Computed example of a mutant assay.
Amino acid sequence: MTSPARAGSSDSSAPVVRFEVRDRIATITLDRPGQGNAMTLQLCTELVDAVDRAEADDEVAVVVLTGSGRNFCVGADLAEGFHAEGREPHPRHRAFQERFGHIAGVPRDAGGVVTLRLAAMLKPLVVALNGAAVGGGASMVLPADIRVAGESTRLGFLFPRRGMVAESASSWFLPRLVGMARATEWVLTGRLLPAPELLASGLVARVVPDGEVVATALDVAREIAANTSTVAVALSRQQLWSMLGAASPWEAHAIESRGVYALPAQADVQEGVAAFLEKREPSFPMRVPRDYPAYGPRWPEPPPATPGSQ
């Protein structure tokens, strides 16, 4: 089934994000190919709506994010402009602020709204990177769990080349993913990064021919959906990300001990053990969010009174 993320989610124009569920995989497609899938407030809002929809669906096990046309996302649509300090906000900026709120006394960065919503998702996220992914389009892929790139993919954190500070929470994610030395070189030069360099850095898991990017990402998603417990995957995703900022491995030990104690009484562990002993493929019955345990982390924890963070 293919549909817009949410009819009338941001304004009256045609939807710019497509949403499809098939075989327990939700595919979210940025759909402004003529503009390189450049980010507008409408696109950001519809993308958040699509993530909300995927997370709320118990039958969705994995999410694949990609872009239509030649490019994944060329960053902010400069034709829309920014709501800058000292200016009266356009009605579309005002509507975005009313939904997603302020932080530190200013409107939330739209790219950061997207990145943090992707990060908070319980379902695993696989990104299929085609063509250019720059600016906010590069930052958007950082919360993904697995990234597949095409041979011609170019990724760039171009912010200083446009006089802009690193945004979309990239200054938090990027050093943790590729190390501080590499992150500073990438951001301070703002250069375009070819696919082999992205692979060598570990930022992307695979580089494949351009025409095979989406198919490869879907193959990865099917492997997760067919062979793993959605509850175990959701818990593991949240644990791995949330422990990046933990002060001690004891914090991980505390959460893991809860899971090791509680999960063997649940249907998925019983099915996993039975399938192994009977030499067959498992059919895990538990679902997310329905069966996600109360002790499971929900990361990243937003500041108090920050709307639209999860």
Rank of each mutant, 00 (worst) to 15 (best):
G211H: 10
G75N: 06
R222K: 07
P285G: 10
P194V: 12
V214P: 01
M121R: 15
D109H: 12
R70T: 02
G156S: 10
A132V: 08
G179Q: 15
D109C: 06
L199R: 12
A183D: 03
L78N: 09
E88W: 09
V62I: 08
A5N: 06
N227R: 13
L240N: 13
H253Q: 06
G136M: 06
V114R: 07
P160N: 04
P264C: 09
F284S: 04
P282L: 07
R70H: 09
G190P: 07
T189M: 04
T27D: 00
A274C: 01
G150N: 03
E98R: 10
S309C: 07
A215Y: 03
L174A: 03
R18V: 01
G211W: 01
V62R: 03
W172D: 02
M39K: 15
N227D: 13
P264H: 14
D11C: 11
E223D: 14
C73M: 09
A254S: 14
V21L: 04
L218H: 08
E88G: 08
P297T: 05
E278C: 14
Q97R: 14
W299F: 10
Y292Q: 09
T45W: 14
V21M: 12
E80P: 04
S152R: 15
M180I: 13
D291R: 14
T115G: 12
F157S: 08
T230E: 08
A262L: 15
R99E: 00
V106C: 14
A275P: 02
D23P: 11
A84F: 11
S201L: 08
E20P: 13
W186R: 08
L65D: 00
